[in-house]
């Protein structure tokens, strides 16, 4: 008779306990965000500043990686497409892949690496050097000023970055197509737009908001709860990237199930 590996299961219990505790704390932190974000005083100036920092300053990195992604994806796909005799469908295939899945996920991962770590480190450093306490003493609600603005900015800016990233990525793909072929810019984009439908664009666009929200919440949570001095700051930045990257994949998994149920796949 099969015996359950009790010892092995027991060895995982402490880690499971930590995981569940952390998940609960993040859920509570998210709940606090929803109870605070619509209450006055509104930190509009700080929100706009964060949109600039989080959105505009991420453009070069997102643009570069998206361009390379489109170019490499096209070059890699071409031999297989040629084997099946459907090389002419390359713009359509790459377009669907980038817009539906690869664009949002890759841009969100880049975003998590750049913005998640920066938020985690910045708030962590502010926490250990008592700057958050100083803010509170100065008549400011630090949660609203630091967390709400950053989470909103991340949520609003990531979909914009995804749209721009998709466009740059497809431009890279057009260059990739033309390395060994001759397709006009107009023909390439016509093929891309003919192949994609509303149900390709909308779910990808909507899930980008959730990706941005996850990166913002996790980065702020890790920074806001940082401790143990400078070592803690580094740990906050690191775990902000790791946890938000995992969250991106989990949200993606959930999104694909939802779109499947709604018949959008």
């Amino acid at each position: 008779m099969y015996k359950l590996p009790y010892k092995m299961i027991a060895s995982y219990l402490p880690s499971l306990n930590i995981f569940l505790k952390e998940a609960g704390e993040i859920a509570r932190f998210t709940g606090r965000f929803f109870t605070q974000w619509f209450k006055p005083r509104y930190e509009i100036a700080e929100l706009l500043r964060q949109c600039f920092v989080i959105g505009y300053r991420s453009l070069p990195l997102v643009g570069l990686t998206a361009f390379i992604l489109g170019l490499v994806l096209t070059i890699q796909l071409r031999p297989s497409m040629e084997d099946y005799g459907v090389a002419s469908q390359l713009p359509a295939i790459v377009g669907i892949a980038i817009i539906r899945e690869i664009g949002p996920v890759i841009v969100a991962l880049i975003f998590a690496g750049k913005i998640g770590s920066s938020i985690g480190a910045e708030l962590g450093s502010m926490k250990v050097t008592e700057q958050i306490d100083a803010m509170e003493v100065s008549g400011t609600n630090p949660f609203k000023y630091l967390v709400v603005t950053r989470v909103l900015a991340a949520t609003l800016m990531l979909p914009v970055l995804v749209l721009l990233g998709d466009a740059v990525s497809l431009y890279g793909s057009w260059l990739g197509v033309n390395i060994r072929g001759n397709t006009s810019f107009y023909l390439f984009w016509t093929q891309v737009f003919n192949s994609i439908t509303f149900s390709d664009v909308l779910p990808a666009f909507i899930k980008s908001y959730f990706f941005g929200f996850a990166v913002g919440v996790v980065g702020c949570y890790k920074g806001f709860n940082s401790n143990k001095g400078t070592e803690g700051v580094g740990r906050s930045a690191n775990s902000a990237v790791v946890v938000s990257s995992v969250m991106i994949f989990l949200i993606d998994l959930l999104a694909v199930q939802v779109t499947d149920v709604l018949g959008l796949n």
Binding site: M126, T129, E130, Q131, D133, A134, V137, G139
Partner: peptide, 14 residues
């Protein structure tokens, strides 16, 4: 607003 607080680490905003 009527109470000043000088932090040990100064807590100046970097």
């Amino acid at each position: 607003a009527k109470v000043g607080f000088l932090f040990q680490s100064n807590a100046l905003y970097d």
